[in-house]
Design a protein around this nucleic acid. Structure first.
Lengths: 227, 227
DNA sequence: GAAATATTTTAGGTTTGTCTAAAAATAAAT
DNA sequence: ATTTATTTTTAGACAAACCTAAAATATTTC
């Protein structure tokens, strides 16, 4: 079970990413995969036979629930490798994607689950995209940079990109950590600093006075909506 | 450059391993790769055109120096991944090979060199086989278990397979470490324990009194001939 | 050294995934 | 509602890597 060719996997993954906006068309997919529409039709028939996509000639296609499950496995592999490359091998942000494109097709489930464990079950890849867990569960809300959080919105810190001693010292002083709830109260256009209210996760319901965050700090803090 | 298909890579690697005993024959290679002689002939023509093998119809083949270079790159990848799987992901000894068979075909040189660095430039994989360095240099003498070292032979400790606290404590007490020179003076058939003389690497020229090593300990110490 | 046996190569076919060019279906425009 | 344009599918080919069966070459044996 769950043994597909590199090519099939790439199609499934691409459909998953494109289908956010409704059904996917042949041309869209051909453009995404840098191939020809005729090739897409060929492959789609195959994936349709394998019950991975709903396909009606001339009317686009979407993944079946089985197809979605496969897609999530591939995305899990991809993002875990990206995390590994950035975190352990010190690849830069922009370099990880290309190498992960190859690594993601190595299909040993045990390899991926052990890699996940080795990495400490990370929940976001270096681009801030969520990593599906071993059961295919994935965070719905995408991670965004604190600088992009709109005024008066509340979100939770989930990742800090710069992990230097100095950075962690500053965060400690401001009592900001993974899980801290943040609400943006003001943004100053002069230096792009912001004023925020924070609440420690769970056990600290008391309202804190607003504190100030420099642009440089905000740039390295990532948050997501929700709990 | 250096971009070959998975199939080509498997052929090159297999020829490298088989050619230790002279030229390789079509049947040998077919058996090794679980394929048919006719398929081997097809591929061999292709590799011959690419100047990776010397090939004369009906008379076997060997790698060219270019082919050997390619083989060493593939073996380097394979053994580094094996080391990674065993050391970092806690795969058992016997499981690493199969997964590494897939990982070895991911061809990014940067990936492999960074992996090498991350792992601390290991010189032997979990089976005791030497890992070629980034320039394709490889230890000539294979690592063997101390139990296999013949009487009155001298060799150098290069690897310890059991790295439990207890084991390291015992090794520390006996002053045995990586680089220690060992000469086997006696082997007792009764309990398969052995008496050895040791000399610390370089700076300790003085002859030590022989010490005794249990079979259990010897089984976990690996040595190689040479410096 | 000719016959028997084993090995290797050729010839022709299959599958996977791609392509081009032409035909069919859908969507847009007048 | 036709015509025009776009999109999608079919038809037929091709390369890679494999296969079977038959022919060619080596090797053994007598």
């Amino acid at each position: 079970m769950l043994n597909y060719s590199t090519s099939e996997e790439n199609y499934i993954k691409a459909i998953f990413h494109l289908q956010k906006d409704g059904t996917v068309t042949t041309n869209e997919l051909a453009a995404e995969l840098q191939t020809r529409p005729a090739s897409v039709t060929d492959m789609l028939k195959k994936l349709s036979n394998k019950k991975l996509v709903h396909y009606q000639a001339y009317h686009g296609f979407t993944l079946t629930s089985e197809g979605r499950k496969v897609a999530l496995v591939i995305i899990r592999r991809h993002r875990l490798w990206e995390f590994f490359l950035a975190e352990k091998l010190k690849f830069s942000w922009e370099e990880v994607h290309e190498v992960a494109e190859d690594l993601e097709h190595v299909s040993s489930k045990k390899l991926i689950d052990k890699l996940d464990e080795f990495l400490g079950f990370p929940r976001f890849d270096p681009h801030g995209d969520p990593i599906p867990d071993a059961n295919g569960k994935i965070e719905t809300s995408k991670q965004i940079c604190l600088t992009e959080l709109p005024l008066n919105s509340t979100a939770v810190v989930c990742y800090v990109s710069d992990q230097s001693i100095e950075m962690l010292d500053l965060l400690g002083h401001k009592k900001i950590a993974i899980g801290t709830k943040i609400e943006v109260k003001r943004k100053f256009s002069y230096d792009r600093s912001m004023e925020i209210k924070i609440r420690q996760s769970r056990r600290t319901p008391l309202e804190q006075a607003p504190i100030n965050i420099s642009e440089q700090l905000a740039k390295n803090i990532f948050v997501k909506y929700g709990t």
